[in-house]
């Protein structure tokens, strides 16, 4: 089996797709091509780079992030939630939270935005060849999970069985509604949905992600758990996974921090000596255990 050195473990540097522009602070211009309302607070923005050649040659790895700019409001970091095989556009799924996300939510089709991408490391998917993969997503945490899951599904022959556990607070909060019917019905994915608070329309599981996970009780043998969600969900889900017998190196998560530069200089997204923007956002639980507890 081929292994790629990834994520950047202390302290070697992994080669990765570099920014296609010389000034790492100057974004590439892009145009909003499509806006999808995923939930009352989440929108997916699909953008196309204005430079045709840049769009055609743009490559990234699943789990890498980009800085999306609305000029005049600022920029913020989001995972690229489309799979790398999608060459027509780049998708960012954005939850309404602060000034920049509000400006992103006000965008309309045809407007110009800025993109600095790809940034950060990515999911070590080649390490998972031959293994089962159990994806776990809570709320907007589905965004990075979507990109890696679609990528893995495209190459399903390389993997064992594939599972998704996707939870949200309530049914209306589940993002990617257009994708869900496909995820529920396709034969190469075993998909479970859950909400904290169900309503009469809800025919799936009710309960928080960690407790539903405990109920599903995936077998840890030859399985990698890949999770993303709010900090508190990550904390309890990892506890559950450990209880189920998952070893720390087989628990992979992707983190969020306040970021500005995205290129490892500005100094705020560190956990110990690692910077989430360049050494992350993807970390194994084993790596995180060796770092100061400051999530």
């Amino acid at each position: 089996m081929t292994t790629i050195t990834n994520p950047r473990m202390p302290h070697g540097i992994t080669p990765r797709p570099l920014l296609p522009h010389a000034n790492a602070y100057a974004p590439m211009l892009a145009t909003v091509h499509e806006i999808i309302e995923e939930s009352p607070t989440i929108k997916s923005i699909r953008v196309v780079l204005n430079d045709d050649e840049a769009q055609r040659s743009f490559t990234f790895e699943p789990g890498q992030v980009g800085q999306l700019s609305v000029f005049g409001a600022g920029e913020a970091t989001f995972v690229i939630s489309s799979p790398p095989s999608e060459k027509r556009f780049l998708q960012f799924s954005v939850m309404l939270a602060g000034e920049v996300t509000a400006a992103i939510h006000r965008l309309s089709v045809g407007e110009t935005v800025g993109v600095r991408a790809p940034l950060g490391n990515f999911f070590p998917y080649k390490d998972w060849f031959g293994k089962n993969v159990f994806f776990i997503a809570g709320g907007i945490g589905i965004a990075p999970i979507r990109t890696i899951m679609l990528h893995v599904l495209e190459h399903a022959e390389n993997y064992g069985s594939l599972h998704l556990l996707f939870g949200a607070r309530k049914p209306g909060d589940l993002a990617f509604k257009q994708d869900i019917p496909d995820w529920l019905t396709r034969s190469d994915l075993d998909c479970t949905l859950c909400v904290d608070r169900a309503d009469e329309s809800w025919s799936h599981k009710t309960g928080m992600v960690p407790s539903v996970l405990e109920e599903l009780a995936p077998q840890p043998e030859n399985t990698v758990a890949v999770l993303c969600g709010p900090p508190v969900m990550i904390k309890y889900t990892i506890e559950t996974l450990e209880k189920l017998g998952f070893s720390p190196e087989h628990i992979i998560t992707t983190l969020e921090k306040r970021m500005k530069c995205g290129i490892g200089i500005c100094g705020r997204c560190n956990i110990g000596g690692l910077y989430v923007c360049v050494d992350g956002p993807v970390f194994s639980w084993k790596t995180l255990q060796g770092l100061p507890n400051e999530l």
Partner: peptide, 11 residues
């Protein structure tokens, strides 16, 4: 050497 990045003005 830490810094922040902010936008000002209206394009």
């Amino acid at each position: 050497y830490c810094f922040t990045i902010t936008d000002e003005g209206d394009p």
